[in-house]
Design a protein around this nucleic acid. Structure first.
Lengths: 240, 240
DNA sequence: CGGGGGCTTGAAACTGATCAAAACGCGTGG
DNA sequence: CCACGCGTTTTGATCAGTTTCAAGCCCCCG
């Protein structure tokens, strides 16, 4: 189960040998389902295994200046705490947004796999670098764009990442975030996020109801967001 | 020459075996000096070597929404484009802030060293993860804090990183940034950065003149910035 | 000594925050 | 099946932080 999306994810972003795919399907794991708002990892934890998101959404968050700041979202196929392999102490919380399913894979198994296969080491390292590129993009987003572009950019990114793992159908995908979550991610107030989403709706760029988002005119939305998917480093940029 | 600060940097953040240190001193490199504002890497480049900063400052930047957004600073001992080992295409510009000295180390040499030594692979991977943690901290900084805390946080971070590599003397260090650079990094206008720095001066938290910064009351400054150095993952947090 | 970049100051305009309250939707328990 | 309650979305009005524009000054470099 966890392999499916993980392999899709790693494959979308760098090719895996048949043998490495086989290794991934054989890795041991424990599945766990987590409720809305439940914490998967807390700041300061020293986890002995890494998480693979099977379905749902996780957010990385920390309280800063009395605000809850989300610094990243993780979706199916992502391994949010891969860094704990080399930086044992988690430096932020991981929290489920809506109900999610995750799998835990022991550090030891991952290390073993990487010892056997330089290709997997490469793939996992690459994966952490892509997430670094995403953080960087968020820095640019928060530092430079105002509300409309900020929210638009977030939507473009999530749509692209969803489509890599086959979770977006023609610009339409399920998004468990509340407007509060978007506010926490974009450094805006809920009220203003609400008005911003309304503006995106009025511009006929998106539909968004009951946790279902549709990009109506993706190219125009990308223009508003100044979005270019290169930083996500996927191999076939057709979805870009 | 490039080894000194690089080893200091990697040592500050994870222990290196004697042999690995030796390997680093023997790696081949080409020194280059770069002028103020000169580009070291451009977006879209596919460099065949990695840069080590010997002295001075580099900034990673991109034009977003007609603003120049800086997403990171690199100082002596840092390897800004280590990610190009696994993500060949650079996705932002690297630019010198003031005059700098850099060394270029061929990808092939780095790969060879890492093949021979898992310890070095670990150290370099770790290094990229720490920079990812710094980006994340910047996301929190830009998303959650207002001007005073934002600028204060940047100063705390740079002071800490400078001290790891022996470039800060008791809270006093050389900082080649202009107020415009700070503005570009903090997502603020120059005018407001100016007033914010004045406020920090009035609060008797810092001195800052002719590219020389002194933290007068580091603890109070850290309180204003809500700064905790854990995300930098240095081994001996005495400088924290 | 002149020029130009960086720093500083003031006033007006704007974006987004905050406060407050109402409407809505959905799941739970009576 | 309906009523209740809570979290989410929506709307309005006021307020604060920051930007923008504009001008003057300082100081370093050539």
């Amino acid at each position: 189960m966890p392999h499916h999306k993980l392999i899709a994810r790693l494959q979308a972003v760098g090719s895996l040998s048949e043998q490495d795919q086989l290794r991934l399907t054989r890795m041991p794991y424990k599945v766990k389902s987590v409720a809305d708002g439940e914490y998967v990892v807390r700041e300061g934890d020293k986890p002995g295994s890494c998480i693979v998101v099977i379905n749902g959404f996780l957010s990385r968050q920390r309280v800063v200046n009395a605000r809850n700041q989300i610094s990243s979202f993780y979706l199916a196929g992502d391994m949010p705490d891969l860094p704990t392999l080399h930086l044992p102490i988690a430096d932020s919380d991981l929290c489920s947004v809506g109900k999610s399913m995750i799998a835990a894979v022991p550090h030891s198994s991952l290390r073993e796999m990487m010892n056997e296969s330089p290709g997997l080491t490469h793939a996992f390292w690459r994966e952490t670098l892509i997430h670094a590129a995403i953080y960087r993009e968020w820095v640019e987003n928060l530092g430079s764009r105002q509300a409309l572009g900020r929210v638009a950019h977030l939507l473009c990114e999530l749509a692209a990442r969803m489509s890599f793992v086959g979770l977006a159908d023609n610009g339409n995908f399920r998004l468990p975030l509340t407007q509060q979550d978007v506010a926490d991610a974009c450094g805006l107030s809920v009220v203003h996020v609400n008005r911003t989403i309304q503006e995106l709706r009025n511009l006929a760029l998106i539909e968004w109801e009951s946790h279902n988002v549709t990009l109506l005119r993706p190219e125009e939305l990308k223009a508003v967001a100044e979005f270019s998917s290169e930083y996500l480093h996927e191999l076939d940029p057709s979805g870009g």
